[in-house]
Amino acid sequence: MARFRWFTHSVPDGLPVRQVYGFLFASDGRVLIRVDGAKHSLPGGRPEPGESTYADILRRETYEEVTADISEPHYLGYQRVDDGIAPYAQVRMVASLAKVYPPAPDPDNGRTYRRLLVPPGRAGELLNWGVSGRKQASAAAAAAIAVLGLPHHDLPAPSYI
């Protein structure tokens, strides 16, 4: 069984980054969750050849999966995954949603995902990532306020966009 641990410092040299995901915030302070049937996740995915930064990966994946543009992403931390084979990192970033387009199929698999905006505390629950996920959502909410300047009180109820 894989173990997951959350860190807020840089990914150590030699630990491969296999995924980059983003906590993407609307201007009202809610975070975007990608919905695929009953599964909830953050927009993001694997690096592709030629992508040199985490921001490049997140921008591409965000557009492909949830047809949205984002502001300059900020590094939040990484989740170390120990799967019994070889440990790797899943990077987490935070950004604002700059523009949201009508839903479109993901070019990788043809699925069109639903997009749900929720208060950050609710994101930790929906992601179902346990303690690590709740820590990540909490760090993202703090960064949304401190780095992105977003509101943190009187957030609207969850809604699909």
Rank of each mutant, 00 (worst) to 15 (best):
V118L: 01
H40G: 07
R59N: 12
V100S: 08
E65A: 01
P105H: 06
R114T: 04
D28W: 14
L126Y: 04
G50D: 14
P119T: 08
A89E: 00
V66N: 02
V31G: 02
S41A: 15
S27N: 06
R115S: 02
V81L: 00
D106H: 14
V118C: 10
D82H: 09
L127S: 08
P103I: 10
G77T: 06
Y78P: 07
M93N: 00
P49T: 12
Y63D: 10
A68T: 03
T67P: 00
L24C: 03
L76K: 12
H74R: 15
L32C: 09
Q90G: 09
A38Y: 11
I70H: 03
P49V: 08
G121I: 13
A89Y: 05
P119A: 00
T112N: 10
I33Q: 02
V91E: 08
G124S: 09
V81S: 06
R34T: 01
G77I: 03
L97T: 04
A86V: 03
D36C: 13
R122G: 06
G77H: 04
I33H: 00
G84K: 03
P43L: 08
A89C: 03
R80G: 08
L58W: 02
L24A: 04
R111Q: 14
D69R: 09
Y78D: 07
I33F: 00
V94Y: 05
A68V: 02
L42D: 02
R59A: 09
D56Y: 05
L42K: 08
G124H: 01
V91H: 07
G37E: 13
R34V: 04
A55W: 03
Y88R: 08
V31N: 04
A95W: 02
N109D: 15
K99T: 11
H74I: 02
G121K: 13
D82W: 05
L117M: 08
P119G: 02
S27R: 13
S41F: 09
E125W: 11
P105V: 00
T67D: 04
Y75L: 10
A98F: 02
P73L: 08
D106I: 01
L76C: 14
E48M: 14
L32H: 00
I57Q: 03
P87H: 06
E125H: 07
L32W: 02
V31C: 12
V35G: 13
R115M: 01
L58H: 12
V91A: 10
T53Y: 03
L76T: 13
D82V: 08
I85F: 07
P47W: 09
Y75R: 07
Y54F: 15
L97D: 05
V66Q: 05
A26N: 14
R46S: 13
V66W: 03
E48G: 12
P73C: 05
Y113L: 11
L127H: 04
V118K: 10
L24P: 01
D36I: 03
E65C: 06
G110A: 10
P120D: 05
Y113F: 09
L76F: 12
V35S: 01
N109A: 10
R34C: 10
P43H: 02
A68E: 07
V31E: 01
Y54D: 11
M93G: 01
G45I: 15
Y75H: 10
K99H: 11
D108W: 11
P73Q: 10
E72M: 14
S41D: 11
P102W: 05
N109M: 11
D69T: 13
S27C: 07
G84V: 04
A123S: 06
P102I: 13
P49Q: 09
L97N: 01
L116C: 11
L42R: 06
Y101N: 05
V66C: 03
G77Q: 09
V66E: 00
